[in-house]
Nucleic acid binder design. Structure first.
Lengths: 340, 340
DNA sequence: CTGAAAGCGCTTACAG
DNA sequence: CTGAAAGCGCTTACAG
């Protein structure tokens, strides 16, 4: 078809003004039933739909929000996005989705691109490279609402959807201690990821609280490269005094660690008890089944979207931004059960 | 801030016309270096960025495409979307993402919503409920480009990104036969999902080709409800003549089947050899490791995006739409290895 | 109940 | 090299 049908085409054909067509299409009360019906009939016949770009421009509302995450294929992010989409759909919003691939450059580009009027606000989980927050401050200066989830920045004071990572790691570590572990290692994520650091803090607190000392040689930093994780695990278990417990920052890393341990014939949980984070579906089907801290991803996504819409509807209400902390749940499975 | 800076603000302040500002911002050659620099300087100072909504309206291009998938949290879809996003980013496109939750109604709504000028085209994988294609035909009538991946509709003639499901299932079934299976069951997906039906066909072909007869009681239809899969598996293995081989339409369903078999103490692969589809990461870490057909999801996503952009740039070239069929690879692991 | 006009924030022939 | 004007497809006071 040469071009989309517009309000003008309808108006001309019906010999009325575009204003009337516009009103009829939106079913405004002042329009005579007769003319409204005529408009609606023709609109249907010609398969006319208002061009939302034009409407957006006039109303300067897009009913669209930007979502920026490190990696779409991580189960955690995919699940949260599922929640965001669900709530967005229910509220009549659309999602403009981008991933950073953990690169600061792409986070920057994505924020820039979308802040040219395309979105009414952002939901962001920061890339692991991000240490400069100027791009986010610029959003704030422009009054564009922003909500963080999972990976936030302390110095940006906006609503956040988080879990109590410190508490969750504390509980997980305590659980290992109660199962007889005396020398517990922590397989962390990249150095500057807040989530990882928070979990490390919980781990350290638990050790101290139980009178175990913190041994820095037992704290190692991995990333999402499987090979790297295997190397780190090997190093850890080649120490003259190897760990008998392992807290891992994510299931993904835990899987790498487990495969390294399998090669070394180190038994789980007999030789080393393991607990990790995220409770991905695979935790229940690996052997041994993997103890893990679950997060309510779907609910977190819905909440992030709700907080953003609140902010859009009540800009700058002067109140301290909400920080919603969701409960986690430690799912105890075979990998950490030494006491039968 | 009260309102975003516009081209008018800049023009007024610099005592030049908006046309000149517009040209300077886009670095058009005819503009004097001096005035261009002045504009750029002020734009930077005031953090001005062109409102892309207005640009879009003028150019009637949005550089945005709509992506509609059944479920964002399925690993397969998340991985393909990752590929789509990658290619979109490289080509300067944005992604408007929606999921249908396998509901026809939502697919319809999503297609309608996004086809009001918001996107230049669609990449869609159909919901399992979709049997009516009027919403897609409407897109075609309006000349809005569309590309399918994975779950398509035969009667809609557009570019498609597929794998050879028939061939892949044939190969997988042959593999079981070569490993000594005589009575092979097929755990299918929902009845009207083309992907599942194609795989079933490949399975049947392989049986026939090997002189095994097709036993309809060994073909059962599951869905993404785990409990349902467990029941089906139980029924299958409570037959007086239970199967000794199992082809499962997806890893997700295979996991359900395996957990049911575990309860029944049926050994894998000794009592029943299993092969499934998707090759999700977990396949390598479950016990036994799971034989599965891998698909190049990332490449498929990139290809879908490329095909869509081709179509956008060369509307209606009169050629038969491309159907790209990617190679699959059967990854043989413990679950199907009876011959040592 | 309906229409004319202005405007949303840009871009683009057309003139000069 | 720059500006005035028209236009992208809508919405919305304002009049009548």
């Amino acid at each position: 078809m040469a071009h989309q049908v517009t309000i003008k085409d309808l108006a001309r054909h019906l010999n009325i003004s575009v204003a009337t067509v516009s009103r009829a299409m939106r079913d405004m009360p002042e329009i005579k039933a007769e003319t409204r019906d005529a408009v609606l009939k023709l609109a249907k016949e010609w398969d006319y739909q208002p061009n939302i770009l034009a409407t957006n421009l006039v109303k300067s509302r897009t009913k669209t929000i930007g979502v920026i995450v490190p990696d779409l294929a991580y189960h955690f992010f995919a699940s949260v996005i599922k929640g965001i989409e669900e709530e967005a759909f229910a509220r009549g919003y659309s999602l403009l989705l981008t991933q950073t691939s953990e690169l600061y450059e792409r986070e920057l580009t994505n924020v820039q691109n979308l802040s040219r009027g395309q979105v009414e606000g952002f939901i962001i989980s920061l890339s692991q490279e991000t240490t400069d927050y100027e791009h986010l401050k610029r959003l704030q200066r422009k009054g564009i609402p922003l909500v963080f989830f999972d990976r936030d920045a302390d110095e940006i004071d906006v609503p956040k959807v988080m879990v109590d990572n410190v508490g969750a790691a504390y509980e997980a570590t305590k659980h290992l201690i109660e199962n007889g572990c005396k020398r517990i290692a922590f397989l962390a994520g990249p150095i500057n990821v807040t989530v990882s650091n928070q979990r490390q803090l919980g781990y350290e607190n638990a050790l101290q609280n139980s009178g175990l000392k913190i041994d820095k040689s037992l704290i190692v930093h991995g990333n999402y490269n499987l090979q790297k994780v295997i190397e780190l695990t090997n190093e850890l278990f080649e120490l003259e005094n190897p760990p008998d417990g392992l807290v891992v920052v994510s299931d993904r890393l835990a899987v790498g660690a487990i495969s390294a341990l399998r090669v070394k014939k180190i038994r789980i949980p007999e030789d080393v008890a393991i607990v990790s984070f995220n409770d991905e579906p695979m935790c229940t089907i690996v052997t041994p089944t993997l103890s893990s801290v679950s997060q309510p991803t779907f609910e977190m996504g819905k909440m992030a979207m709700s907080l953003l819409i609140n902010q859009i509807n009540n800009p700058d209400n002067g109140l301290k931004p909400d920080v919603i902390v969701f409960k986690t749940e430690l799912k105890i499975r075979e990998s950490s059960m030494r006491i039968k």
